[in-house]
Structures are given as structure tokens and as C-alpha cells.
């Protein structure tokens, strides 16, 4: 299938989903659906570096939070524009601020991408394990800075007040839901494009054997940096609408460990070698958690995620997609 056709189909599915939810007319569906979509973006983004290149990023929560706090920052600037900008600049700045949310998402992507580039440049020359440890460290360093940065709320947190109504979409949550759908389409298309391109081949050689990759002419460091930037940028973009979704952000919610766990567990459970894996994993685990949060406690559902992760890495290393493939192969043989 060609990429435009793929995007068209995704868009059709997204539109169908939106109208189905609107028809039911329950806001909760949009709220729950938003979270699942957000996990699809995070899992797909994680997989571009983790699944394709084999570099484990434990810092998904960090990149997500970069997006969250980029929005908080830009929003706060918009709120306090009179105090922040000298008088003669005020008129032009008021034309720009407050920034529309889609622009904030893009800025968040750029910021997260740059931080990914910086960190990758520092650590991607080393063994993969060191990169993994560095990503753990990054999250804590970032959280410490945010906790101590009072402009974006510090440890107290910050309020971001969404407008009640938006044109065309009505409720603001509908608008957020559509934005997240667009991000999902963007993430899945990017992942699929990479998979089928020369870049995807290069990523796979890095995952399989870096020395052999270099000897075959693959510029491994540059490719790893590309993966880190794309992956980080998508995670940042996934985090950018979050303040508007939740209304009040504090470091503990933006840097929540469950983002890191889920964005690893979902691809691992779904399957890491293609874009379908993270999608399947995120849909399954994401929905499961939404249901479980209502019916049982959220601690229990995180426990389930953790146990599933351990179970799958031991028993089914190629994830659900791998299991299905094996079944199909067996059936075609008999």
C-alpha cells in the first residue's frame, strides 16, 4: 500500500471513530479515548528507537513531560504577556500570544527533539546499556529542574484553563481528541515510512549488529541520532496537549513513571518489529487500563501491566504480532 492510501485509510478510521463517539454523546468516551490515543503515540514513538534500533529508552516520561511543560511555559507566557514584554513589543507579541494549541504541539516537538539530539550525542557512542541508564538519569534531572522552576509552577504545579467551547468541535475535549487522532496518524505514518525505507534497513542493522553495520557502510551514530530525535519529538508532541486535558499539572503527574512503563510494555507486548505491534499493544493495554481504573484500583492495573510485561518478554519475545504470525504460518503449512 502506498503512503497516501495508508494515510487516507487511517483518516477514515479516525473520522469514523470520532463520529461514533459523538453519536454516543458521552464525554467520558472522549476522555478515556484520549488517553488510549496518547499511549498509541508514546508506544509508537518509543518503538522507533527501542524496537527498530534496539536502544532502550527509560525516559519516555521525561520526553512526555518536556512536551507538557513546553505548553505550560508558552501558556504562562501568554497569560503574563503584559508583565514579560517591554511596552513597544507588546502589540506584535499580543498578535502571536496566546499561541494556538497546534502551534504549541509543534514547538513541543522541536524542543523534545533537540533534547533528544543533545542526549543522544552525549551517550549514543557508548554501549546501549549506558544510553538506557542515561535516559533514566535524564528524567530525574529534568524533574528536578521543573520542581525548582517557579515560572512553570515548580512543585506546586500550574493551572492551565482550557476554553469551554471551541468552534466546529463544541466541547474542548472533542478538539483535544481530534488533535490526538492527528498525532496518532502522524506517528503511525512516520513509523511505517521508516520501516519501509532505507532508514528502516539501517535501523535494523543497528539492532542486529552495530559493528557489522558500520563495516557495511551504515553511519550508525547518525542513524541513532535520527531515531532519538524522531522518537523524542513524537513523545514531546504527545505530552503537549496534556495540560489542557488535565487542567492542573504538577511534576509528579507529568513525570509519572507509568508513561515510561507503558511505553515500553505496550510495544513489547504488541511486538517490536513493525508499527502494528505498538498499536495493538497500546489499544489492548490502554483500553484494559481505562476499564480497570473504573472497576478496580489504578495500582492493580499498573501491577497487571508490569506482570504482563515480564510475562511477555519471557514467554513471547516477539509479542502478540509474533504469536499471530506464527499461528498463520502453522496454518498455511498444514
Amino acid at each position: 500500500m502506498r503512503t497516501p492510501a495508508f494515510i487516507l485509510i487511517l483518516t477514515a478510521v479516525a473520522a469514523a471513530l470520532y463520529f461514533a463517539f459523538s453519536y454516543v454523546g458521552n464525554d467520558y468516551l472522549f476522555f478515556a479515548g484520549y488517553t488510549v490515543l496518547q499511549y498509541i503515540v508514546l508506544a509508537t514513538a518509543w518503538n522507533i528507537l527501542g524496537g527498530y534500533c534496539g536502544y532502550v529508552n527509560f525516559g519516555s516520561a521525561g520526553f512526555f513531560a518536556i512536551g507538557v511543560y513546553t505548553t505550560v511555559f508558552l501558556y504562562t507566557v501568554g497569560q503574563q504577556i503584559e508583565d514579560l514584554v517591554p511596552e513597544f513589543m507588546l502589540a506584535p507579541m499580543q498578535l502571536i500570544f496566546p499561541l494556538p494549541l497546534p502551534v504549541m504541539i509543534m514547538v513541543a516537538g522541536v524542543v523534545a527533539g533537540f533534547i533528544g539530539l543533545g542526549m543522544g550525542y552525549l551517550t549514543l557512542r557508548l554501549r546501549g546499556v549506558f544510553f538506557a541508564i542515561a535516559t533514566l538519569a535524564l528524567t530525574v534531572v529534568l524533574e528536578t529542574f521543573i520542581v525548582n522552576w517557579s515560572f512553570v509552577g515548580g512543585s506546586r504545579g500550574a493551572y492551565v484553563i482550557p476554553p469551554n467551547e471551541v468552534p466546529i468541535f463544541g466541547h474542548f475535549i472533542n478538539f483535544l481528541f481530534v488533535l490526538m487522532l492527528v498525532l496518532v496518524i502522524l506517528a503511525l505514518t512516520t513509523a511505517r515510512l521508516i520501516e519501509r525505507s532505507k532508514l528502516g534497513v539501517g535501523f535494523a542493522t543497528i539492532r542486529d549488529d552495530e559493528l557489522a553495520a558500520e563495516a557495511s557502510g551504515v553511519p550508525t551514530l547518525r542513524l541513532k541520532l535520527v531515531a532519538t530525535v524522531v522518537s523524542g519529538a513524537l513523545m514531546g508532541m504527545a505530552g503537549a496537549p496534556f495540560p489542557f486535558y488535565i487542567g492542573y499539572v504538577e511534576p509528579a503527574s507529568a513525570f509519572n513513571l507509568s508513561y515510561a512503563v507503558n511505553s515500553i510494555a505496550m510495544p513489547m507486548i504488541g511486538g517490536t518489529t513493525s508499527w502494528i505491534g505498538p498499536l495493538v499493544g497500546a489499544l489492548l493495554l490502554g483500553t484494559l487500563q481505562q476499564v480497570a481504573t473504573v472497576t478496580i484500583s489504578s495500582a492493580v492495573n499498573l501491577l497487571i501491566v508490569g506482570l504482563l510485561l515480564i510475562f511477555f518478554v519471557i514467554i513471547a519475545p516477539r509479542g502478540i504480532v509474533g504469536l499471530v504470525q506464527d499461528q498463520l504460518r502453522k496454518r498455511s503449512k498444514t
Partner: peptide, 15 residues
Amino acid sequence: DSLRGLAFFFGLLFV
């Protein structure tokens, strides 16, 4: 296969 090994321990930590 360090990827899965890491995920395994991460899962243990979390659980």
C-alpha cells in the same frame, strides 16, 4: 538480547 533483559528487570522493579 539486552533489550528484553532490560525490559525484564524494568518490569520487576515496577511490579
